[in-house]
Simulated scan of single mutants.
Amino acid sequence: MGQLIGAQSSPRSIRSAHLRPELPEVDAVPPMNALEILRETVRILRADPSSFMTILALLVFPVSIALLSNAFIDASIVGALARRLILLAVASGLPLTHFLKQLCYHLAGTVVSSIVCFPLLLTFLLVAKASIAYSVACIYAGKRVVAAEFITMARRIAGRVVTTYLWVCVTISSCLAVFLVLLVAVCNAFAVLMYPPQIIVYPALLTVLVFSMVYAHTIIICNLAGVISVLEDVSGLMALLRSVRLIRGQTQAGLLIFLGSTIGMAFVEGLFEHRVKTLSYGDGSSRLWEGPLLVLMYSFVVLVDSMMSAVFYFTCRSFSMEMITADDSMEEQEMIASKLEDVS
């Protein structure tokens, strides 16, 4: 594990001015596309599987159990919120279809689950993501991951990590609130113009499509901000702004990472809903092995997603520094050219 992961890493060493002294010095990681980031993530996982599997078992697995099983969620609350959303959608002019009902129930379940599981997300999942980012940085630096060193560092960065996470929650909640307000406004505008519900569906779908792109960008920025709060001495709004600057030129790779992670999580959630909550063989014994297996699969997807976010941070930072170097070179060339013109 003493060697740097990724044969394509540059030999020159780059240390960000924002990095804390206790963090290892990381060599430059060249810009990668989404597939290369996935391959790099697999190499990092193979370099130190014990550390990442420990994080998965102790921190990610409990959160996955709570999110998939909905053990702490009252179904009546989800149903009441879903009915309110359905009434709001119908009052806005949308037709009452089976897809609309399922969408409202899914949205209500996601909101209630996020609120109920917030203590777990603020503790277990936040510590898991911080430890994953730190472990990836250690492996890139050719340094052994030591739990005692991470605990010491965690005490110093806990404030800024929590602050950044709260800003992330506010950002995502605001994005969802703006979407709902915009969707209702668009539907009501077409309803006032006396368009039938079958026609109102199309501008509503267009609004959902635009929101999906905005939401994907928001999640990418928020995930990157979480890594930044661990590896750099910034937090909160400044971490989000730093994330926006870093992601320039790497948006496509970030979108593909988000798409792959979302599909993976949705696939496992669908299997858990269908195989564990709905179906069973005979006396229901299938749940005894299918349930833990699907929870483990979901935990692994969360682990890989967090690792890819950390790798994405390093490649974005390297790309950003290369762009700065290129700009400086262009300025120097322009200055030399202007001096030559003055001499001539």
Results as ranks from 00 to 15, higher is better:
70 N>A: 10
254 G>T: 06
54 T>L: 00
240 L>K: 02
324 I>K: 09
6 G>L: 12
305 D>W: 12
96 L>V: 05
143 K>E: 06
145 V>F: 10
260 G>Y: 12
147 A>L: 13
105 Y>T: 06
330 M>R: 13
138 C>Y: 01
108 A>G: 08
49 P>E: 04
126 L>A: 10
157 I>A: 02
220 I>V: 15
332 E>Y: 09
81 L>E: 04
152 T>C: 08
55 I>C: 00
268 V>E: 07
47 A>P: 00
204 A>I: 13
279 L>R: 08
105 Y>L: 14
125 L>Y: 05
121 L>I: 13
47 A>G: 03
161 V>M: 13
276 V>W: 00
296 L>F: 08
201 V>W: 01
274 H>M: 11
292 P>Y: 09
170 V>A: 15
49 P>C: 10
156 R>C: 04
104 C>W: 07
76 S>D: 13
45 L>Q: 02
332 E>R: 14
318 S>K: 04
56 L>W: 02
196 P>T: 13
64 S>G: 11
214 V>I: 11
89 A>T: 11
178 V>K: 13
264 G>H: 04
21 P>E: 08
231 L>Q: 01
223 N>S: 09
141 A>T: 03
25 E>Y: 04
295 V>G: 12
184 V>E: 12
324 I>C: 05
183 L>P: 06
160 R>E: 08
168 V>P: 09
59 L>V: 06
167 W>G: 05
95 P>L: 06
339 K>C: 04
234 V>A: 14
2 G>A: 12
235 S>C: 05
30 P>G: 10
94 L>Q: 07
269 E>C: 07
193 L>F: 11
147 A>I: 13
318 S>M: 10
339 K>N: 09
232 E>V: 15
325 T>L: 13
156 R>S: 06
286 S>W: 12
218 T>Y: 03
11 P>T: 03
318 S>N: 07
273 E>Y: 11
301 V>S: 04
148 A>D: 08
176 L>G: 12
174 S>D: 10
287 R>M: 02
4 L>V: 15
245 R>I: 05
18 H>L: 14
307 M>C: 15
142 G>F: 00
331 E>T: 13
93 G>C: 04
326 A>K: 06
333 Q>K: 08
51 S>N: 09
252 Q>F: 15
220 I>N: 12
247 I>Y: 02
167 W>F: 12
263 I>C: 01
35 L>H: 10
114 S>P: 06
204 A>M: 03
146 V>H: 03
222 C>W: 05
139 I>H: 00
203 P>H: 10
323 M>K: 14
134 Y>G: 00
125 L>T: 03
225 A>H: 08
139 I>E: 00
100 L>W: 07
154 A>F: 14
312 F>I: 04
283 D>I: 07
106 H>Y: 15
11 P>D: 06
100 L>A: 07
69 S>R: 04
209 L>A: 14
260 G>W: 14
154 A>V: 10
226 G>K: 07
202 Y>L: 14
131 S>H: 02
205 L>C: 02
152 T>Y: 07
108 A>L: 09
199 I>P: 05
169 C>R: 10
334 E>P: 01
165 Y>K: 08
235 S>F: 09
259 L>I: 07
73 I>F: 08
93 G>D: 09
52 F>R: 00
107 L>H: 12
167 W>L: 11
